[in-house]
Amino acid sequence: MKLLRLSCAIFAMSLKADLAHRSNILFQVLLSLAAAGSSLITVQIIFSRTDHLGGWTLHEAVILFGTFTILGGILLTFVEPNVLWFHQRVIAGQLDEVLVKPAPSLFLLSLGRHAPLGLVQAVIGAVIVAWGISLSGDAFPVWRGLVWLTLLAVAAVITWVTRVLVALISLWVPGLALDVVYDGAWQFGRYPVTMYRQPARFVLTWVLPVAFITTVPARALTRGVSPQLLGASLAFGFVAIMILRLVWMSGLRRYTSATS
């Protein structure tokens, strides 16, 4: 409860700070629009040459890309401001300030800063999803939308966990910054994971779980999802949180016994 109040306060304050710079907002909107627009054109071109991409039709691929864009916005807004160049903060001893505060350190560390302008991208993603739905011409039952939202939440959790895990590596290997690698891996979520050959598909499902981040939620919206897969996703999200907690606790032990 306290964490929710804290989150809201941080978000509101950061938003206020962001809104003070009008030109930045305009810039962010234009940049996100142009990036999303040209990506959509790419998807269109691909489908002008083929009917199916890894078994997905055009409108399905558009919905997938919209989902990917939404999650990119969430990543940019809530996670990246905390973990970008995390190794530098470790080296500079800036973890100390998090440890002396009477609130969960993992929360303060990984969700304590927000960049609300990133939500512009999430909104654009939502519009793209809506457009994909209208392209299909089908009526989508409400429950599918609800399942999609649920899986989107799971995907956001997995995004947070994986990104923070990648940052925490620098607690064990000082100076190792995999920010760029995560960025690169993230891009594979633009397309359905069924498009990739093995063993890439396996890696993208279980090691860098972009399948759970974009493919599964988008599939749930376009064709529905079996209760088993829904359950598996929820379990995966839960396990991911547990893993992050364990890793953080052990990283914290290391930090508190080793810094100078």
Partner: peptide, 9 residues
């Protein structure tokens, strides 16, 4: 380092 936390606020 008198101030930790976000500097935009």
């Amino acid at each position: 380092q008198p101030i930790g936390g976000p500097v935009e606020l």
